[in-house]
């Protein structure tokens, strides 16, 4: 396991280097972006982080169901790790969004359906982490978190639809103009998506190791206590 982690870490590092090279050197700047074309490069990180964020929350949802079915600690640990990493990725999305938005739309934030849904998503999974923090016993924490992991994920499509209809009623000031991606740009996007996926897996392994170490520590303490 240790070895696998090292290999994965090295692979992640290499792929991230490759992604950075491709984003800044290989990928062309779209011709229809005239002022500050470099800003558009944030798209590769922004979109990749968003996709992996959603993936992470989907993993939370699946692991929550499996945990409630078979009550194995393992699944709870995976769900917890994935939620934490997912919140980090979603935070990246919410932070990189305004940076690009200010340059492209000249506003930091607009209540666009995708932005707003991502924000609500972030709140839901921060709530998930707060639930994990405030339950006392391990078993209860896992059970409550799993229940909320399911509720939260089911809520997301309804939130998205509601916000979409809500925004179509109000005037949409900024049309999210889809910049046509050239093949080179598409390749770059997929490489950075791959890099972010590996980074997600690497974070997951690290986070799982922390959970396992915590569990071992608790067991050791318990043994020590019963010893004296």
């Amino acid at each position: 396991m240790q070895k696998f982690r090292t290999v994965l870490g090295a692979a992640t590092f290499l792929l991230i280097c490759a992604a950075i090279y491709m984003v800044f050197i290989y990928a062309p700047v779209p011709s229809n972006v005239t002022d500050m074309p470099e800003v558009q490069k944030i798209l590769y990180f922004h979109v990749s982080a968003a996709w992996i964020g959603f993936l992470a929350f989907f993993v939370v949802f699946v692991c929550s169901i499996v945990y409630l079915k078979n009550r194995s600690r393992k699944w709870d640990m995976v769900a917890a790790s994935s939620a934490e990493v997912g919140v980090v990725y979603t935070s990246i999305v919410l932070l990189t969004g305004p940076v690009w938005g200010k340059a492209a739309w000249n506003v930091w934030w607009t209540w666009d359906p995708r932005l707003t849904t991502t924000l609500v998503l972030w709140f839901i999974y921060v709530a998930y982490l707060i639930i994990r923090n405030s339950a006392e016993e391990d078993e209860k924490r896992a059970r409550f978190a799993a229940v909320f992991g399911i509720i939260g994920f089911i809520d997301v499509p309804i939130v998205f639809m509601a916000i979409r209809w809500w925004r179509t009623i109000h005037p949409i000031i900024f049309e999210s103009n889809s910049v046509g991606l050239t093949p080179k740009m598409l390749t770059t996007l997929f490489v950075s998506l791959g890099a972010f996926t590996l980074l997600y897996l690497y974070y997951m392994l690290l986070r799982l190791d922390i959970s396992k170490a915590k569990l071992q520590l608790a067991e050791l303490k318990e043994r020590l206590r019963s010893h004296y």
Binding site: V120, I131, F148, G152, D155, A162, I163
Partner: peptide, 15 residues
């Protein structure tokens, strides 16, 4: 805890 976990979930009802 309740307001923190409830408000994000009821967004569709609020809208």
């Amino acid at each position: 805890l309740l307001p923190i976990i409830l408000f994000p979930v009821i967004v569709p009802v609020v809208i």
